[in-house]
Design a protein around this nucleic acid. Sequence first.
DNA 1: TCCATTGTGGAATATTTATTTCATTTGTGC
DNA 2: GCACAAATGAAATAAATATTCCACAATGGA
Lengths: 281, 281
Amino acid sequence: MSADEDTLAPRDFESLRSLIIDRRSVLPRRLAQVAKYALDHPDEVAFGTAASIAGAADVQPSTLVRFAHQLGYDGFSDLQKVFQERLRGRNSSYEERMEALKTAKEDEKGEAALVRGFLAAAQRSLEDFSSLVDPALLSRAVNILAGADTIYLLARRRSYPLVAHMAYAFGKLRVKNNLIASPNGIDPEIAAMAGRNDAALAISFSPYAADSISQARAMSDAGVPVVAITDSAFSPLADCATEWLEVAESDYAGFRSLSASMALCMALPVAIAEARLQKQR
Amino acid sequence: MSADEDTLAPRDFESLRSLIIDRRSVLPRRLAQVAKYALDHPDEVAFGTAASIAGAADVQPSTLVRFAHQLGYDGFSDLQKVFQERLRGRNSSYEERMEALKTAKEDEKGEAALVRGFLAAAQRSLEDFSSLVDPALLSRAVNILAGADTIYLLARRRSYPLVAHMAYAFGKLRVKNNLIASPNGIDPEIAAMAGRNDAALAISFSPYAADSISQARAMSDAGVPVVAITDSAFSPLADCATEWLEVAESDYAGFRSLSASMALCMALPVAIAEARLQKQR
DNA sequence: TCCATTGTGGAATATTTATTTCATTTGTGC
DNA sequence: GCACAAATGAAATAAATATTCCACAATGGA
């Protein structure tokens, strides 16, 4: 057990990569062979078994374990995790940051820790969502809404702040809209005013508010195009929507973030207003 | 062994996804639960073990195997391979992806670029704000609000979604609150109901909504403690507030982000509810 | 209400997979 | 070319993981 093995063992792929490149020249033949194979076929290392990788790299499984030990890992499985993280949506630099925040938690007083927790959840939501943005889908959704005479905004409870902002943004951009959130109980009647030339934007996340769903379905049945923002392919909203956009938010202390959905809800009005301008020409 | 199981078993993720969406409605409870988990957390399914995935989805490992069989696979491992294939070749280290996002702006079509722009602005806001969090100040602000009988929430226009969320969160946490945003023009009268035992939380960013400011000042003059969230030391809100918290948001396409303020507005109710619990003891 | 069918949890089992061990080979300084 | 250390291959072992099995519960039809 040389001193090396205690100090090393990077947890993120980029550091590991540099380490391997550094070390390769001083490694024995078989280990160098593994080093080369690992950097040339990182996907294989991430998904393969010790035996399959060893076969492909033309070494013995035990050589893989030795290689991992040499680099300071507990074993091959430990090393493999780094290769897996690389392919994961949230990779280790993210994990590290979360760790940093978590440890900061203990130092700080309760309130600041809480704020950081929510900031971290928000950040995570943004990152996760940014990899899910589908330009074609987005384009279809914007098209539907840009073609509408009046846009009906439908959301309750946790999602309500999102449409509240949209109503504000649409107002500034002079886009006709109708926020279905009246405190006087005539929501269904307002929803019934929507026709084929209008469109609805419905937002709901699990646990889905029952009347959001039923009103969205009613509008959809009435031939109103419905664009939905929701959190799963199995959301009842996804069912009845003409197009639906997926946003999966992280949560903290029992409250889900709104940052990704909010960013989307800020972009939509601008995109819609722009699409309308282009149609006028 | 029904005929189904021979004919099916897609080898690529997209087909599998459609198949699962199709089938889910006719699946038994636990299998549907697995279906949802699998589509909501595909990375976990790709890298996890039967036990870890089963744990996360809150089912038994055997249920995973049944699920795979139901879909026509040999077993869970066979199904898992499809989830792994999805990630192969997608070698996105975190840095690479962030770079891609920033440069992709120019390549991508309008709508997706717009969404990315707002996501980036949100991210910047979060980062900027996280370095400004002042535990002591936060603690004083929470104290004021935790000591109040009723919390009056005051915000207009762009800031309204923030207090809309807070009203929701306070509701869930059973904290008495009063959202000053009535559509019937009696806001000043509602504000006048606040007394020394209450407190106000006012939010306003430049350009400051005139009546937010005047109502905040009125309450402050009446001896109501006021906690403010605003964007500058020179904000008129900072003037009349007992304590004020600074949040500077980035903007994109003429609309300022709300992500940092929103994170703060999610943390505050939780912090306040916790502080109240501790006071009771 | 009963029966038959289908679904479910949990433990037992089988299988796969990683790791360790050790005999053998290879390389290196003298 | 000899002795010594380091490296290697192959097989044995240990650990983990998936799968099967069975008793029991829930469900739906007669």
